[in-house]
């Protein structure tokens, strides 16, 4: 089967337990099997739909608005240091 769950889980930043992995793989394989019915349709020169509306050129003007939410969000963040958000070490430097 083309669906390599370990690789996709890594890409999705999910670390699945073995039993979880087994169940999800089975479910997704069955869903992918169902999705395969689309293969019946010839879609060679059909334009893909990304938007259902025919809107174009929705812009905003280059104006600055200052809305100060920093203190509010910092005060509720899971981990901060001063006015910064804090995260664990990004890489282990060698």
């Amino acid at each position: 089967m083309e669906f390599e769950i370990e690789k996709i889980a890594q890409l999705s930043r999910l670390s699945l337990k073995p039993e979880e992995l087994k169940k999800l793989r089975k479910d997704i394989e069955s869903i992918l099997g169902y999705i395969k019915t689309l293969g019946d349709l010839k879609t060679g020169d059909i334009e893909p739909t990304s938007h259902v509306l025919d809107l174009e050129n929705v812009f905003r003007k280059d104006d600055v608005t200052r809305i100060n939410i920093r203190d509010e969000v910092i005060s509720r963040a899971p981990c901060v240091e001063g006015p910064f958000f804090k995260v664990p070490k990004v890489v282990d430097k060698e």
Binding site: L14, P78, K89
Partner: peptide
């Protein structure tokens, strides 16, 4: 991803925290 809001599980490094 646990950075700005909501749940954050502890992790030794960033990747572990994400996962």
């Amino acid at each position: 991803d646990g950075v700005q809001y909501g749940l954050r599980a502890p992790g030794k490094n960033l990747l572990e925290m994400y996962f």
